[in-house]
Design a binder for these strands. Sequence first.
DNA 1: TTTGCGAGTGAGTGATTACTCACATTTCTG
DNA 2: CAGAAATGTGAGTAATCACTCACTCGCAAA
Lengths: 221, 221
Amino acid sequence: MSGSDPVAVTEAVAAVIAAVEAEEGKLAPKKRAVLEAALCCFAEQGFAATSTRSIAERAGVAEATIFRHFASKEDLLLRIVRPLGMRLMAPAVAEAEAVFAQADGDPEEMIRGIFRARLAFADRYAPLVRILLQELPVNPALQGLLQEGVIARLARFAEDRLTREAEQGHIRPIAAGRFLRIVASVLIGYWVSRSMVAPGDWDDEAEIAVMASVLARGLQP
Amino acid sequence: MSGSDPVAVTEAVAAVIAAVEAEEGKLAPKKRAVLEAALCCFAEQGFAATSTRSIAERAGVAEATIFRHFASKEDLLLRIVRPLGMRLMAPAVAEAEAVFAQADGDPEEMIRGIFRARLAFADRYAPLVRILLQELPVNPALQGLLQEGVIARLARFAEDRLTREAEQGHIRPIAAGRFLRIVASVLIGYWVSRSMVAPGDWDDEAEIAVMASVLARGLQP
DNA sequence: TTTGCGAGTGAGTGATTACTCACATTTCTG
DNA sequence: CAGAAATGTGAGTAATCACTCACTCGCAAA
């Protein structure tokens, strides 16, 4: 309802545009406008509650123009969301893997690193994240994408680091799936609180410090 | 997509029926049927994607019957969701408060108690919880209800217990809001994983033990 | 200059939307 | 038992839905 931070919108739009252009070359200007408008509408009202008419109006385009470039409203959604999994999540996962690889011996700093990076990521692409959170409960395709494309891959990598740390006695032995779920839950819970439930003044660094401290100590052997 | 556990549906339906009957006496049978059908439809497809026609068909009722008993589709949603805040959350909050009050000196057992109770609650009223999770991002009224009616009240109560425990050196000093957010995040993350993202075989007691252990140790001074 | 083509659109399409209304039927009440 | 009130519905309503189609336009190759 409150609308989205224009900076974040621009970032998210730019990312989606870049991803689509990588597939099919330079986009027609009005196709760009449709993507941008749809992204905002879906993020604000949800997919089902958004009409193609309102997208067209926001884009300054005839309704027919939407269907020249996209097969259906559903196709438009997928075009917007798919890059999130493919092009955005992949570097994000790699980045998280880098955090796992570094920072030997200090799990708390590792968690802080993950939190800072993922929080910046979520803020950068806030409208996309919002769409993802809304559609996830009703869209099995998205559930599968998230489950296999992100969680499973990340867990496989984290497993190595975590067993190594556990053998050295730095942390308690814990399954990677559980570790990731707990850390991700705390992170997502914070993001949702801060930017959806109770927007206002939040001291990210202080909150991250508390969350990382609690989690790191919780993981001690 | 998988549909809801019929037992859970019955529980949730019974709770909503009971709440509405408490307000306006015995319900007309078809009004009951409408409430039940709407509850299932909203939980499965989301509010916006559910048509009044599909509700009527599922309820075995004429579409007009819906509007004899409910002013609008939106009103129907609120009638279903409001009891969750008022009648269901209130005992839940009281129950959580009881957990806070008991179990002095063992935060881990306290957290396990909270987890067991809230998990059972969420399973009992799974369709309602599903609706709540789906509508929360787009419905500011629900956001306010949750924020002020549940979180604020619970935080006020938890504050006492937490400062008391902190003074005795059992746990580190932590703001109640942060404590609740972290615990709730882990709990919700688990519930969503278990019953929405990756349904399958989960050993609740084992998972609860891990989560409670991590959180309790994380809260040590 | 002609021809072909992708971009863009106004004016529709039938289907579906939430919702209404006149009227039948059942239930309650005096 | 009479009559009022509550419950239920078939047949609508206008509006909106996602989507189509015949068409124009600007532009570039032949």
